[in-house]
């Protein structure tokens, strides 16, 4: 971890402010994301997580502050700029079409082609082969590349979306609450996927409000609360209770904890 802290962050957000009229959504948030780490962004509903990742992925322009990619200040004008810088977002609502096959979804918008008699055709063998390869690497066994995405479980769909982003050269992967609607088994599959992706040197920004999921894979943790951050903690430098407290802003949860017996 120390070696990484001295390296250049792949993306750095400096003092990001975002206001919507009188509403301050982000009041100066700074974080650094390093290659090969899983950076967990925690926060309760309304803490500003969504606004923050939207600025990171170019959907929203910050009112103030800088986005630094590989040492250069780059303020994204639109999502395409962010994508070109290697930042990919896997949304809660996946960019996937349930009626279409896995391989057609995998290459949607980036279809491989081959020329036959001067006309370019969709290279199905190549797409099928590469999809199966990528899925096998992630530990998903498909019945075949033509299996429809609609037949996959929620966790498997997340994994397909993640491996698609990585396959097309994502350097920073933003995962927006990938585990929020999943069961235990599927959640562990997604967490395992995050671990594999991280080992390939991709930086993962993992947004969640579940402390246990964050602690399972996270290297560093940043808590957002009411548009500000309370700093970044290293793995092992913080207890689950402390994280939970930071997210909730302290008091209320502490008083609830007694009656709930530590189950939150």
């Amino acid at each position: 971890m120390n070696a990484q802290t001295e390296a250049t962050p792949i993306i750095e957000m400096r003092n990001i402010r975002k206001t919507y009229g009188p509403v301050i959504a982000l009041a100066g948030v700074s974080i650094k994301i390093y290659p090969g780490e899983c950076h967990c962004l925690l926060g309760d509903n309304g803490a500003g997580k969504s606004t923050f990742i939207k600025t990171m992925s170019g959907v929203v322009k910050p009112t103030d502050g800088d986005i630094v990619v590989n040492g250069d200040i780059q303020n994204f004008d639109n999502p395409r700029d962010a994508m070109e810088a290697g930042i990919a977002t896997v949304h809660q609502h996946l960019a996937m079409i349930p009626l279409m096959s896995v391989s057609r979804n995998f290459f949607l918008g980036n279809e491989p082609t081959k020329k036959i008699a001067g006309i370019s055709f969709y290279d199905r063998e190549k797409a099928d082969h590469e999809t199966m390869e990528a899925m096998r690497k992630m530990g998903i066994n498909l019945r075949g590349p033509d299996q429809a995405v609609g037949t996959l479980s929620g966790g498997e769909r997340q994994t397909v979306a993640i491996s698609r982003a990585v396959h097309f050269g994502a350097k920073v992967l933003i995962l927006d609450e990938p585990t929020s609607a999943l069961g235990v088994r599927q959640t562990s599959n997604v967490l395992a996927t995050i671990d594999k992706v991280r080992k390939e040197g991709v930086a993962v920004v993992f947004i969640t409000h579940n402390v246990r999921h964050a602690l399972a894979v996270g290297d560093r943790f940043t808590v957002l609360n009411r548009g500000t951050t309370h700093g970044t903690a290293e793995r092992g430098g913080i207890t689950p209770e402390a994280l939970q407290d930071l997210m909730a802003g302290g008091q209320e949860l502490a008083s609830l904890e007694g009656s709930l017996g530590g189950t939150v």
Partner: peptide, 15 residues
């Protein structure tokens, strides 16, 4: 196929 299956998802993928 993608345009009819889910236009929004297709747009997100650059179609």
């Amino acid at each position: 196929f993608a345009s009819g299956g889910d236009a929004e998802a297709a747009r997100n993928s650059g179609v």
